[in-house]
Write a protein that binds this DNA or RNA. Structure first.
Lengths: 221, 221
DNA sequence: ATTTTCCCTTACACCATTTGTAAGTGTTTT
DNA sequence: AAAACACTTACAAATGGTGTAAGGGAAAAT
């Protein structure tokens, strides 16, 4: 079941939330130490974060921004601040939904399900800057366009995406594709890189792969 | 700029919406013929749909459901129905957000931006019930698993998903794969269906395709 | 109960795609 | 100027996709 992390400093409200969510079958984790909240949440790997705004050490707005920059979501803000400007600010910072207290139990649950549904039906794609890559199938996505890379092309791109923005040596790429127990001429790597660059051009992804002479390759961006 | 399709039968409200959105730089398309709305919207390929609920021929709820089954989204419901049960129903049917009229202009725009931001960068997958399908590459997604179907297997599954839960005749499937100007033995369709069923089993998707003897096939769920 | 019809499955051969090798070219470094 | 490194294109072999053929099973018709 989905893991929901709650950032709420009012003890009574927190217990009530925990009760509602656990009755619904969710795994709940409540933040009680209000220092370095974004870091704590990152290590918890939540499926959804319920975030209050008025907190002791940091504003929920700051936390929201920090979570977003770490790619953690979805984030549902649940706060007593019911002014329109606060809602606009929260949404602007990247909150996925903004609800005000007091909130009807069924409404809260419906909004939570809504966010979970939207995120969990999505494939686990790895962000490559200007594109996304499915590590299972080597399917490359850019906007509404997509294409499937061949095994070799996909293996190379995956290695570069996973190590972005670090340089990946030719030796590491060769081992990634062919292992160490069979001899493949080094030129095969060059050829496959040329094929990959050509394929990337089909999605207008020019100059994504940068050559560092004598060291290896890296993904730009 | 993003294309927003509006389904609103009140002319004054519709004009006001168009004005607000165009001033913001959006491309707007307003539905004025209220028959077969889901089909019209599908051909428009919108980036977002603003949907009223009280409409002349069909309920916005039905349209929402139909759009969702065709993988069209996001959907922002904007309605005068402000009862909690209506909101819950809309979210249950798959609406991505539910706002009631009258709605503050800045709030509406913020919610629209919120949805657009969340969907751009995501591949356009069609919902198949227990799985999702990328119509470009025939990549099949189920949870964190994915695999790429062959052209024939993908073409068959796509047809079934797009017509779900309707029956698709063998003739329609054959025409989808081979057109009408070349003769392919009917058994080729049977063979490819067997191959597709075997591939689906690799993702534990048993019994997804139902045979209706003498009529055709349909997707379960 | 038997026959006919429809659907499914497996194997085979042909076609399309992927990929390592070979050879040539261009650029950068020594 | 020569050497080293990187890139590109073409070719042939290997691999995967797919229609056809043949056989079998189940449901419907007689």
């Amino acid at each position: 079941m989905a893991r929901i992390v709650m950032v709420e400093d009012d003890p009574l409200m927190r217990e009530e939330l925990i009760d509602i969510l656990q009755k619904e079958g969710f795994e709940t984790v409540a933040i009680t130490d209000f220092h370095d909240i974004a870091l704590q949440i990152a290590t918890l790997a939540p499926d959804l974060v319920i975030l209050d705004i008025n907190l002791p050490e940091q504003s929920g707005f700051e936390i929201c921004k920090s979570l977003k920059s770490k790619g953690i979501g979805p984030i549902l803000v649940l706060t007593s601040r019911d002014k329109l400007q606060d809602e606009l600010h929260g949404l602007y910072l990247g909150a996925d939904d903004y609800l005000t207290k007091p909130c009807n139990r069924d409404r809260l649950l419906a909004r939570i399900q809504n966010l979970l549904r939207r995120y969990e039906g999505q494939p686990s794609l790895i962000d490559g800057g200007s594109f996304s890559l499915d590590p299972n199938t080597f399917t490359l996505y850019k906007g509404s366009q997509s294409l499937v890379l061949s095994a070799n092309e996909g293996g190379i791109l995956l290695a570069l995406v996973q190590n972005r923005p670090e340089i990946v040596s030719k030796r590491a790429l060769s081992e990634r594709l062919w292992g160490t127990d069979q001899y493949i001429d080094e030129n095969a790597l060059q050829v496959n890189l040329t094929r990959l660059r050509k394929t990337l051009r089909q999605l207008n992804l020019e100059n994504q792969i940068e050559t560092i002479r004598g060291q290896g390759y890296r993904l730009r961006g």
